[in-house]
Amino acid sequence: MEQINNLISGGAVTDLLFYVFAALTLLCGLLVIANPFSRNPVTSAMFLVLTIISMSGLFLLLHAFFLAAVQILVYAGAVIVLFIFVIMLLDLKEEQRRRIRFFGLFAGLLSVGIVFSIFIKCLSSAKLATEAPANAHDGETYALGKLLFTNYTLPFEIVSVLLLVAMIGVILLSKKKLE
């Protein structure tokens, strides 16, 4: 632990790792939405797994160890499995290539362009910290847990109820016929 800590706190190596993970994230993200070789949803799902794993690498670089673990556990372990499962269940044929809708293309690029320009403008005008502060939160998981069960008790409980509701909802929705 100590060694990893030292390793990622160090300057050049961390920077290098950042660029690697960032590039991996973006590349895999791109392949999720647009894969020139395959239009099979399973491929997309697999690249989504890769995106998530590289993102948890970024989380590690940001000292969010617990979240990195949760990310892999929940997303790669549960969510993606669910996706794959549904794809199998539905027995989707490979999506046949349809006529490209120019309006759709135009609309997508336009909206993304607008959002992107707004982000760029904000990012460039904001004065952001370049230097991360020294490690104040050693034993981060402990601090996070403490925060979660003291300051954020009520949201925590509400989220648990939400999960229950989602569970019941899913069971109801999956029944063959609703009475």
Partner: peptide
């Protein structure tokens, strides 16, 4: 669905523009 999503994004960006405009 996607037309609605597109219009939704346009609306959100309009709100963002007014909120973030300095």
């Amino acid at each position: 669905l996607q037309t609605y999503a597109f219009l939704f994004v346009l609306g959100v960006s309009l709100v963002l523009y007014f909120v973030l405009r300095k």
